[in-house]
Amino acid sequence: MTGTSQPPQGGDTQGPAEGPTRRELVDYMLGGAFVLTGAATLYPALNYLVPPESGEAETSSVVLPFSAEELQPDSGRIFKFGNQPGIALKTPQGEIRAFDARCSHLSCIVQYASEQHRIMCACHMGWYDLTGRNVAGPPPRPLTAFTVNLRKRKGSDGTEIVVSRA
């Protein structure tokens, strides 16, 4: 059979009731529909492949945005650990420690008090020593300690501080 080349399926003859325009219209519609479907599927899929700016999921460990060298002895800095604040500190002796920065009293964010060599919560004058133990004021419990690991950063002199939940 030598039917027209347009219909993709089987070499059937043109139906008597259908003019070529109408048939072509349906085929164009269908073709358009499939192109549409393909585009509507590919667009989200390809966008999905592009990595988001924040790079990777936050997990149970975090690399601090400052290096061990940048953290001065006898000082502390707040960092973001998931959706919580953490405090990293360097003792006067140079040891680095990290804690959950939320005061165990009413969850204010604590700070490093250099003069006293302690961690302080300014909300109700809660004091913790440098091991996170509550030593004075209202806090009922010690600060939750995190595990600190140090590792050499590739291609630079800095040392990365990696904090993870104990």
Partner: peptide
């Protein structure tokens, strides 16, 4: 597609799914 972002470990699985749901476009 999920395989590209999912991480199969007890410390990261939940966070990676949360990441897919909130950060990854579509």
């Amino acid at each position: 597609l999920l395989l590209l972002y999912y991480r199969p470990s007890s410390t990261e699985a939940y966070e990676s799914v949360q990441f897919i749901m909130t950060k990854v476009s579509w």
